[in-house]
């Protein structure tokens, strides 16, 4: 199984990490979308398990969650989906999810089953580093990395506490807020990335609000090792629900554009 380390070492360029909600808008189309993203040059995948109450997400991802759940997504189907993706290509996968889903599944069993399916790391959006021990033991035992978020309002002390618990990569939140496309890159992200560079050796990936090639180029210039793009991609799904071909070609073009922007740095 391909590791984050291998990906981050293989390339001297920053990595592109698209985010999709598993099963959005439905299982089959979702798989086509992920394949398209891989073919267009995604280095790592960030996949979300949809939740009924995603408080860290803005309207775009909320709607994706609802589409997926309405079309019958379940934990069992999420595992199936991940296995299918890994059969298509051995690409590292990070999960992004809410705690209740893991809690109900059983934390140990979750870590075992999802690692076996091919997942490299898990980020629980509503699990604070203060409660990291609730998942860290089982995750470690199963071989799953645990990713946590660092936000612009974290003190240095807090960042130190978080990075100490992180394995895999630092999920750097570019702004104070929820996920969702933004016109402008937050002015908080560059200083935060610069500070993180001095505080940890773990790769630094930046997400939330990255919507354009220029945003991606700017965070890479600031020192980021990876760029996570979610809502901007999911908008393309939402806009083309009636035209699958157009949906896939627009996703492919957008990823290519992002890759070029990163490569141009």
């Amino acid at each position: 199984m391909k590791t984050y380390k291998e990906v981050f070492c293989e390339t001297d360029k920053a990595t592109l990490i698209p985010f999709f909600v598993i099963g959005d808008p439905d299982m089959e189309t979702s798989f086509e979308i992920v394949k398209t993203a891989i073919d267009a040059g995604a280095d790592i995948l960030e996949l979300g398990i949809p939740f009924s109450d995603p408080i860290a997400d803005g309207p775009t991802i909320q709607k994706a969650d609802i589409r997926s759940l309405r079309n019958g997504m379940s934990m069992a189907k999420a595992i199936e989906f991940i296995k299918r993706v890994k059969e298509y290509k051995d690409i590292p996968i990070g999960l992004l999810m809410y705690y209740n889903l893991m809690y109900q599944y059983g934390i140990e069993k979750f870590c075992k089953d999802f690692h076996q399916a091919g997942v490299n790391s898990v980020l629980v959006a509503d699990l604070n580093v203060d409660d990291a021990e609730e998942i860290q033991g089982p995750a470690k035992a199963a071989g799953l990395d645990t990713v946590f978020m660092v936000t612009p309002n974290c003190s240095d002390e807090r960042i130190a506490k978080i990075t100490e618990k992180i394995s895999g990569f630092v999920y750097t939140v570019s702004l104070l807020g929820v996920t969702g496309g933004r016109e402008k890159l937050s002015d908080k992200v560059r200083p935060l990335v610069a500070k993180l560079k001095t505080m940890t050796d773990v790769p630094i990936c930046v997400g939330f609000g990255i919507s354009k090639g220029q945003h991606a180029a700017d965070v890479v210039k600031a020192g980021a090792d990876g760029v996570i793009v979610g809502s901007a991609l999911i908008k393309l799904i939402e806009a083309n629900l009636e035209n699958k071909e157009k949906m896939l070609s627009e996703i492919s073009e957008f990823i290519t554009e992002m890759k070029e922007a990163i490569a141009g740095v």
Binding site: A56, D126, T151, R158
Partner: peptide, 11 residues
């Protein structure tokens, strides 16, 4: 407890 996204922790 306080099971919230990191951005709310400081808040």
């Amino acid at each position: 407890g306080f099971y919230v996204p990191e951005v709310l922790n400081g808040v």
